[in-house]
């Protein structure tokens, strides 16, 4: 089973990034091999729809679990279409969140925020 987490740094001790679409990296942790891979988030610099593109990357990484503090509606639609389960992280480091998830201590994330593309002004 592969677990995906948005992280601020390329390290298991990294914080979980507060923004799913704009995170610099995703940590993909494989619970079978115990290996971690860090992938650059190409969506971080895109002008719009970052959440959708980032979600596509998670799907392509073959993760079946996503741990994230929050998620936009569009990204959630992609993630759910791929039948990936979404859990809400705590403020602890990425590794602690993985352990908490394995121990069954993270709740499912089921509130998704509206996209920001409709924002006014610039």
């Amino acid at each position: 089973m592969k677990i995906a987490i948005p992280v601020d740094e390329k390290s298991l001790q990294s914080n979980v990034c507060v923004s799913f679409g704009r995170t610099p990296y995703f940590l993909i942790y494989d619970t079978d091999t115990k290996k971690s891979v860090f992938v650059d988030n190409g969506a971080a610099v895109s002008t719009g729809g970052a959440g959708i593109k980032a979600a596509q990357m998670i799907v392509d990484s073959k993760a079946s679990i996503l741990l994230t503090p929050r998620l936009g509606e569009n990204a959630a639609e992609v993630i759910k279409a791929a039948e990936i389960k979404i859990y809400k992280t705590t403020t602890a480091a990425a590794q602690d969140n993985i352990e908490a998830f394995i121990a069954g201590k993270l709740p499912l994330l089921n509130e998704f925020h509206a996209g920001f593309h409709g924002q006014r002004g610039n």
């Binding site: 002008t47 970052a50 279409a81 593309h117």
Partner: peptide
Amino acid sequence: CVDFCKFNALAYIKDKLIIFEEV
């Protein structure tokens, strides 16, 4: 199409193209 769209309005999931009309 997914790679092309600058606005990321397209995603390809489970052998299906998803179009985000609002995006």
